[in-house]
């Protein structure tokens, strides 16, 4: 079984600056691996180990993301792909989902695993979008996996309820970091890690319309927000009634 795992490099800080079009300036901030994604890689490796499968790791983003692929690839991935293309600067959900769905087809993946959310974007919609393009189902917010066979038993969020289910066909799984503790690769694993292979948009079979993201949504304005706080602070439990009176005035 071939499992495609998606990872994202995210800013390691919330102190961000933004360009005129509202896109984050990622060049000037330290970066880290999205926390859920490390566990996604570990889960994929454990599943692949139990069914003699292979893990293919992929990311989309600027040059610096290649370092992340090398680090994660050393955990036990068979190959790594880095999709990087100026045509994808500021890519939206539709464009990003089309890139990864096309890549899943290119590598003949039978399962896609990714983090349930990205630290720099709270949408959490990408896994469902990829599943839709592939004609698969999506099991979102997987919090644990009980059986690492080719038909894994997972606990996921189904219609707002934590639900146990057996995965019986090609699916996209979005996972929380609780699914598996990421391993730390040893020196030999680091030395034999697969080299990331670069892919451009032209290497993938992508619907042209999907890449026209600037036509879909026009950003009219981006404003920095600074909320003024009352900052009224009391010392000691004896001031509780003063505190409670103020809260009552606020309607609580």
């Amino acid at each position: 079984m071939k499992i495609l795992v998606l990872a994202k490099q995210v800013p390691a800080t919330t102190d961000l600056t933004f360009g005129e079009n509202g896109v984050v300036d990622r060049s000037s901030v330290p970066k880290t691996v999205n926390p859920d994604d490390e566990s996604a890689v570990e889960l994929a490796i454990q599943m692949a180990e139990s069914v003699s499968g292979e893990v293919i790791l992929a990311t989309m983003g600027p040059e610096s993301a290649s370092e992340m692929l090398s680090e994660l690839g050393a955990m036990g991935c068979a190959s790594c792909y880095h999709v990087s293309d100026n045509l994808l600067n500021g890519a939206d959900l539709v464009a990003t989902a089309n890139v990864f769905a096309a890549l899943a087809k290119k590598v003949n993946a039978e399962m896609v695993i990714c983090g349930a959310s990205a630290a720099d974007g709270k949408g959490g919609l990408l896994p469902s979008a990829i599943a839709s393009l592939l004609g698969w189902d999506c099991l979102n917010e997987v919090s644990s996996v009980e059986d690492f066979s080719s038909e894994p038993v997972v606990i996921f969020n189904y219609q707002g309820k934590k639900t146990k289910a057996k995965v019986k066909g090609s699916s996209v799984l979005s996972v929380y970091k609780t699914v598996a503790e990421p391993r730390i690769p040893d020196v030999m694993a680091v030395l034999s890690a697969p080299q990331p292979e670069s892919l451009a948009v032209s290497d993938l079979d992508i619907n042209e319309k999907a890449l026209k993201f600037n036509d879909r949504c026009e950003i009219l304005n981006v404003e920095n927000v600074k909320k003024e706080r009352k900052n009224k602070i009391w010392e000691g439990i004896e001031s509780f009634s003063d505190f409670h009176t103020e809260l009552k005035k606020e309607g609580f």
Binding site: L93, V94, G123, L125, S128, A129, I130, S132, F213, C217
Partner: peptide, 20 residues
């Protein structure tokens, strides 16, 4: 989350944006 899944699927199937 269930609404998000539906809208994400609609969005990519129709190449239309989703704003959350």
């Amino acid at each position: 989350s269930f609404t998000g899944e539906i809208l994400a699927s609609f969005s990519v199937s129709s190449c239309e944006p989703v704003v959350w």
